[in-house]
């Protein structure tokens, strides 16, 4: 099928640098996200861009990180998941 794959059309996920570098939190983020949006690469939490639109807005990553450490933004109404 023709047409390129687009990522991050609906959801944008970001991690504060300090949070991403915390090995324990990074591992936790990878573990809690049900749709594999986080992966630990070289001991750091990274966002798997091709999976971000699968975000089910469960908020588990936000709970797993210190306040403000992870941001999940809904691009279609420009709000942030609390």
């Amino acid at each position: 099928m023709a047409g390129g794959d687009l990522y991050g059309v609906f959801i944008e996920v970001s991690i504060e640098d300090a949070v991403a570098s915390d090995a324990a939190i990074a591992a936790k983020l990878e573990e809690v996200c049900p749709v594999d949006i986080f992966a630990v690469v070289d001991g750091k939490a990274t966002v798997v861009a091709e999976n971000t639109d699968e975000c089910v807005l469960c908020g588990l990553c936000i709970e797993a990180a210190p306040s403000g450490g992870v941001t999940v933004r809904k691009l279609y109404d420009d709000t942030i998941l609390e």
């Binding site: 023709a2 047409g3 390129g4 794959d5 687009l6 059309v9 609906f10 639109d53 089910v56």
Partner: peptide, 18 residues
């Protein structure tokens, strides 16, 4: 089945096909 997930899927299909 979640309505928002299907909505994302079908809209994405349109966008990916221009």
């Amino acid at each position: 089945t979640r309505v928002d997930i299907v909505a994302r899927g079908v809209i994405k299909a349109c966008l990916e096909l221009d």
